[in-house]
């Protein structure tokens, strides 16, 4: 008797939890995967610039220049499709994108434009010398942080 009840309960729980599991294990919404990949690529290139700015990595004009150019291109691609309606953190697992992105699209677009402009300022000076790079890194961090503060759920 107990066994049967347990079996039925297990099947019911399994049936209920399957869609959520499927979503986290491999079937993540492709829009979410794409934009998180974009963020990682940006962080990878900022890591080169930030590592030099913080003195963890020797300054190398060529490497700084190419990281800054990569970053500039990444901030200029059209990512509109990745921010599909209904992919906020209240609707889906695995994302910290706040509904404010869709509730205040003009502010979100302005935050994206601010990042592109900070990346452009960095690209203009990254290859010049370390002091110039250090001067531009704060604007870059500020643009990232301002958007995260308004549009990303803290962990």
């Amino acid at each position: 008797m107990f066994h049967r009840a347990f079996l039925i309960a297990s099947i019911a729980v399994g049936a209920l939890s399957t869609p959520a599991l499927a979503q986290t294990a491999g079937q993540m919404d492709p829009n979410i995967t794409a934009r998180q990949s974009l963020m990682r690529l940006q962080a990878y290139n900022i890591g080169v610039l930030g590592g030099m700015a913080q003195g963890r990595m020797a300054y190398d004009a060529e490497a700084a220049e190419s990281a800054a150019q990569n970053l500039l291109h990444l901030t200029q691609i059209n990512s509109r499709r990745m921010w599909a309606e209904g992919t906020d953190n209240s609707a889906m697992e695995g994302t910290r994108a706040l509904p404010a992105i869709w509730a205040t699209p003009d502010e979100f677009a302005a935050a994206g434009a601010a990042l592109a402009s900070a990346a452009s300022a960095m690209a203009a000076v990254a290859g010049t010398d370390l002091a110039s790079l250090q001067g531009a890194i704060r604007g870059l961090g500020g643009a990232c942080g301002a958007c995260h503060q308004a549009f990303r759920q803290p962990e």
């Binding site: 962080a43 900022i46 942080g145 995260h148 503060q149």
Partner: peptide, 9 residues
């Protein structure tokens, strides 16, 4: 090289 958000910013 993620960047701080939320109230910690």
């Amino acid at each position: 090289f993620d960047v701080v958000g939320g109230s910690m910013a």
